[in-house]
Every structure is written in structure tokens, then in C-alpha cells.
Design a protein around this nucleic acid. Structure first.
Length: 624
DNA sequence: CACCCGCCTG
DNA sequence: CAGGCGGGTG
């Protein structure tokens, strides 16, 4: 989905939060190809489909082939339209440098709002806690008072009145607390909604209008592959609000744990908010206290969980935001006590990705202070590598100004804080590190994507990771490439952190294929950024470029093939809604086979939508 | 001249 | 996927 995953260029984005959505106006492919600055401007979405400089080349490609003569400009414009405006409701046409941030007006909560929301919720939490404490103290006083009243008959009447009063007071307080809880719940839902809106909403909205042939079932199927919508497509709306209480015991949804609580209703004799009190029981004075306690606890828990989750999700999109705060780590340690709640994807990632980062299991929950030691394990601390720019110490929840991207991590496997420095590229790395072959192929230097400029594929586009055991087994047999290609499996063994390998491994080929879904025409600097573990020379660069040339060729050929077929079938004039591009289609199969052979990624719906949009256009052009 | 591209071929 | 080729560009 559209996630903020493409916000990588800090400075640009600080000036204009959605700068990254700006399409490249560059009309000079070669000038841009080697311009590092251009990397930051790549649109977030659909690397595969998006007309970064590729459009022109695609046009030239077609022109040379004589496939679609005279359609170059048109293609670019329309593609811009499709992927710039339709997909993101933005799109800088031509050289207009309009700040795409405009798009965020109204639909995208301002970072400031976020801070305010968090502050409000935090305040509510503190208020409720303080209130409950106060109430507890009062209750205690009352208790003492009532025992005294037993001894003093003359004060009985007054005491009874007092008790009535206090009962009413308790009632009032209960009401207040209830109201507060309701308010908080509303706030939480609002927060959830905002989270969803920010990280999944826009594309989802557009998807609704765009989907057409990618019917709901299909989309649902695609989504269903993801346990965590943020990890996966990111499109899924928060499910907790629509789930029934008895369905919320799983870990699905954006706020799995939260949803459990939030969906429990205040009705009937149901256990209320898990405090083991049923209605009526807490009507008594003792129950009231119990209720107040439970309410306090529950309220605090719910709020804490939601806040933590929001923070975590926030952190996932903005690692620098929490680099100096203990929030994610702390919450991970305090809240995620049940490992079973971890989504499946986390399990896969934990065994695959984390060992590369944290070598000792007990370190996973190490206090912050210990994270210093982990620096040694991080590329950042590698003396042979350029130091990672340290972001300024942010406030607890700074405005969404930093454009790094944090690899999401298992909730109960907090990453060491230095890892939070990882940028967007780390997301990609994380994805790759979950590939079956990463264990052998990803050195630490390999994971060191620290360039803040380069545009890495948005994870959501790549879709849901779902490496299967069979894939891993299969991966072992990946054949080696040409002359400069060394065996990927062994290569990493000789790759000390910070060292570069001379040749390109099958891992690099695979990575390049995935990379192709983001950049069809990578510049040499991009390549260097993407392959930090490769010692670049003329030969290696040429080979990589050749790879991409081959990728393009194959991709365009398939595109054209599919488009021609569709045209033959009379779909040319038909609206795009008539064009079906699901997982069962040939194009999908072929492309997936070629670029995602081991199904390292579940192709997200947006990918299909993007491909479809392009095919539709090509098809219609074919039939003109 | 170096570099990259698309295209063709194997 | 690589090699070779011709072409374009700076």
C-alpha cells in the first residue's frame, strides 16, 4: 500500500512531507540516471509500473520496436496520470513542483494531530490513573469511617446518609469512569482509524475505485495472506472494530490485542473487560472498589496497548522518531508477554531476520542500556562504513518529518535501538533478509542500506512475505550466473562485515529482480546503494545494468504479449474494469515466475492494480 | 572515448 | 541470462 515507505529524503520531506510522491519531471533520462538526488523523488508506489525515467525509455523501447509509435508523450502523461494522480491522488505534471502534501489536506492527519492525540490519550490515561488512585484512597477513608460508625450509634444516621452519599458518589464516579472509558475508546478508535488512514487508507480508498476486475474476493484473498496488514499490503482497515467479540481472540487486525478489549461490550452478564466482574457484582461497595481497580487497570492497559501500538506503528514508518525514546522497546517488553499472539509473519521473520541483527536471544529483551553493545553488531558501528547520520533527538512523537523507515519487528522481539536508525532501505533489507537465501547471502554490510536518498521498494508493494519451507529448500539449488558470479551461498562466508565481494551472486540477481520492481533504470549510484556489499567495478556495474536490461526486456515483452492478447479478445475498447488481472492470469503467473520465482513475496492487490492499469492502457493503445 | 541503451541471438 | 552489435550521448 501506500505507506509512507517511500519517504526517504529527509530534507526534501521536511520541507514537503509528500515530496516523495512527486513524480519525476525529469525528461532527461541520462542526466537523471546518475543523479543521486533524483533517487529521492521516486514515487512511492509501483516501481514496476511507475513512470520514473522508464517511461521515456519504455516509449523509446516501443518506438524502436515499432509497437506503439507516436505514443510516447501520451504514455508518459497517462502513466503519470495513472500512477501519479489516480494511485496517489497526486502527481506533478510536467515540471510542476507542486507539493504533493496538498493531498494530505483533510485526509491525512497532520503529524501535529498525532502528537496531540497521543498527548490527549496519555493525559486521559494519567487522569484515569490518578482518579482511580484518589478514589481508592477515598474508599479506604470511607472504609475506616464506616467501621467507626459501627461503634458510634449516634453517628449512624449520619453515616448512613454518608454511605448513601458515598454510594451515589461511587455511582457517579463509575459513571464518570465509564464515560471516560467510552471517551478513551472513542479516542483509541479514532487513533486506529488515523493509523489506518495514514498507512493504509489512501491506497485503499483509491483501490476501491480502481479495483474493478480485481474483485473483492481477490483482494480479500490477497489480504488474507497477511497477518499483519502493516507488514503486508497495509491496505486492510483495522479489523478490530468490525469484529465480533468472539472473533477477536486471534491476533489478526492492526491492533490485535487491543481489539480484544475494545470489542468486549458492556452488556449483559458478560465478563466485562476481563476484570472478572459481572454486572451486579460491582454494584456492591466491595465490588465497586474492585470494579474501580479493574477499570483503572483495564483502562490503563488498553490505553497503553493502543498507545504503544500506535507508537510502534509510527516508529515503523519513522524510526528516527523513536531512536531516542524507549517507547517501543519498553512497551515491547512490558506488553507483549504472550508470544503466541505473534502473527505468523513475525515468526518467520524472527528466525530469519533477527539473528542477523541480534546474535544472542537473551539480548532481545535487553534493556536500552545494553543496546549499546549491539552497536558492535550493527553496520552503523562498522568502522569501515560511513557513519550513519544521526538524526536529531526527536521529541517523543515528533512530527512526521524524518523520512526513514523502520523495519517492523516482532512485537515481542524488540530490536536494539540502534537498529531504529535503519532507513527505508532496511525495510527492503528486512524483506530480503527473510528470503530463504538471506542467511547465506546477507552479510551485515549487505544490510547496510543507509543511504537516505535511494528509493527502495515499498514493502507493501512487494507484498506479503511468505517464504515457505519448500522455497527455502528450493533456494539451495539456485544456479550460479555467469563469469563474475560467485556462489551466493559460500560467498557470504567470506564476507566479513564491511567487506565487499568482487562478483555478483545469485542472491544479488534475486535482489536485483526484486529491485527491478522498484527501479527499472537504476543509476549506478542506486546500484551501489542497493548492493553495498559488492565491490563495484566496471564489470560488475555493467553486469548489473545488463541484468536490468534483461529484466526490462522480459517485462515489456510480457506486457505487450498480454496486452495484445487482451486486445485480440476485444477488451481494448472495454473499460479497464473488463480486464481481469488476478493471480490466475497468465501475466501474473509469468511475471511472478520470473521475478518472484520462489514466491518470496505475495503480490499485493495494488500491484495487480498497477499492472492492470498499465496493461489496460497498452491494450487500448494497441487497438487504436 | 566511455557508457548505456535496445535489440538479437544462443 | 550473457554476449555481441549498433546507436545515442556527453
Amino acid at each position: 500500500m501506500d505507506s509512507p515507505s517511500d519517504r526517504f529524503h529527509q530534507q526534501l520531506s521536511q520541507m514537503c512531507p509528500f515530496e516523495l510522491y512527486r513524480s519525476l519531471p525529469d525528461s532527461n533520462p541520462s542526466s537523471h540516471r546518475f543523479s543521486p538526488g533524483s533517487l529521492s523523488s521516486h514515487p512511492l508506489f509501483s516501481p514496476l509500473m511507475h513512470p520514473n525515467s522508464a517511461s521515456q525509455r519504455w516509449g523509446s523501447f516501443r518506438q524502436r520496436q515499432g509497437l506503439f509509435p507516436g505514443l510516447l508523450v501520451d504514455d508518459d502523461v497517462s502513466e503519470e496520470d495513472v500512477f501519479g494522480k489516480r494511485e496517489f491522488a497526486v502527481g506533478a505534471m510536467g515540471s510542476s513542483q507542486r507539493c504533493p502534501g496538498e493531498r494530505g489536506q483533510g485526509s491525512c492527519p497532520d503529524p501535529g494531530d498525532w502528537g496531540q492525540d497521543f498527548a490527549r490519550v496519555k493525559r486521559l490515561r494519567m487522569d484515569s490513573a490518578a482518579r482511580s488512585e484518589e478514589e481508592t484512597r477515598r474508599e479506604g477513608k470511607r472504609g475506616r469511617k464506616s467501621t467507626a460508625s459501627v461503634r458510634m450509634d449516634e453517628r449512624k444516621a449520619a453515616e448512613q446518609a454518608n454511605r448513601r452519599e458515598s454510594r451515589e458518589g461511587r455511582k457517579r464516579q463509575r459513571q464518570e469512569l465509564k464515560l471516560q472509558l467510552e471517551e478513551t475508546r472513542g479516542k483509541l478508535l479514532e487513533l486506529q482509524h488515523k493509523v489506518w488512514k495514514v498507512y493504509g487508507g489512501q491506497a485503499d480508498d483509491e483501490k476501491g475505485g480502481e479495483d474493478g476486475p480485481i474483485n473483492l474476493d481477490e483482494v480479500a484473498e490477497m489480504f488474507s495472506d497477511s497477518d499483519d496488514p502493516l507488514i503486508g499490503s497495509g491496505f486492510s482497515p483495522p479489523r478490530c472494530s468490525s469484529k465480533k467479540p468472539n472473533e477477536t481472540n486471534g491476533n489478526a487486525g492492526m491492533f490485535p490485542e487491543t481489539s480484544v478489549d475494545l470489542d468486549l461490550e458492556l452488556n449483559g452478564d458478560q465478563v466485562w473487560l476481563g476484570c472478572s466482574l459481572v454486572r451486579g457484582e460491582w454494584e456492591s461497595a466491595e465490588g465497586g472498589q474492585k470494579f474501580a481497580q479493574a477499570l483503572k487497570q483495564e483502562l490503563a492497559n488498553v490505553v497503553a496497548q493502543v498507545i504503544d501500538r500506535v507508537v510502534r506503528h509510527y516508529a515503523e514508518s519513522d524510526p528516527s522518531a523513536v531512536t531516542s525514546t524507549a517507547v517501543p522497546q519498553e512497551t515491547s517488553m512490558t506488553l507483549d508477554l504472550n508470544p503466541d499472539r505473534r502473527p505468523r509473519i513475525y515468526v518467520a521473520e524472527q528466525v530469519e531476520a533477527l539473528p542477523l541483527i541480534t546474535k544472542s536471544p537473551q539480548d532481545k529483551r535487553a534493556p536500552i542500556a545494553q543496546s549499546v553493545h549491539k552497536d558492535l553488531l550493527l553496520p552503523q558501528a562498522n568502522p569501515s562504513l560511513a557513519p550513519l547520520p544521526q538524526p536529531p533527538l526527536p521529541a517523543l512523537l515528533p512530527p512526521r518529518s524524518k523520512e526513514h523507515f523502520l523495519p517492523s519487528y516482532p512485537p515481542d522481539n524488540p530490536v536494539p535501538l540502534p537498529l531504529l536508525h535503519y532507513t527505508m532501505q532496511n525495510l527492503f533489507t528486512r524483506s530480503l533478509s527473510s528470503l530463504p537465501l538471506h542467511k547465506n547471502c546477507l552479510s551485515e554490510s549487505f544490510m547496510d542500506f543507509r543511504s537516505h536518498n535511494s528509493a527502495f521498494p515499498p514493502l507493501p508493494l512487494l507484498g506479503q512475505l511468505d517464504p515457505s519451507p519448500s522455497d527455502r529448500a528450493r533456494e539451495g539449488g539456485m544456479r550460479g550466473g555467469g563469469a563474475g558470479v560467485v556462489d551466493g551461498g559460500d560467498a557470504a562466508l567470506y564476507l566479513a562485515a564491511g567487506s565487499s565481494q568482487e562478483g555478483l551472486s545469485p542472491c544479488h540477481l534475486k535482489k536485483a529482480k526484486l529491485m527491478f520492481f522498484h527501479t527499472r533504470y537504476p543509476s549506478s549510484s542506486t546500484l551501489k546503494t542497493y548492493f553495498p556489499d559488492v565491490k563495484f567495478n566496471r564489470c560488475v556495474t555493467s553486469q548489473l545494468i545488463k541484468w536490468f536490461s534483461n529484466f526490462r526486456e522480459f517485462f515489456y515483452i510480457q506486457m505487450e504479449r498480454f496486452a495484445r492478447q487482451a486486445a485480440r479478445e476485444g477488451l481494448a475498447s472495454a473499460r479497464e474494469s473488463a480486464l481481469h488481472l488476478g493471480r490466475d492470469t497468465e501475466l501474473y503467473r509469468i511475471l511472478n515466475m520470473h521475478y518472484n520465482k520462489s514466491n518470496d513475496y505475495q503480490v499485493s492487490a495494488c500491484m495487480c492494480t498497477c499492472v492492470k492499469a498499465r496493461v489496460v492502457r497498452v491494450t487500448s493503445q494497441l487497438c487504436v
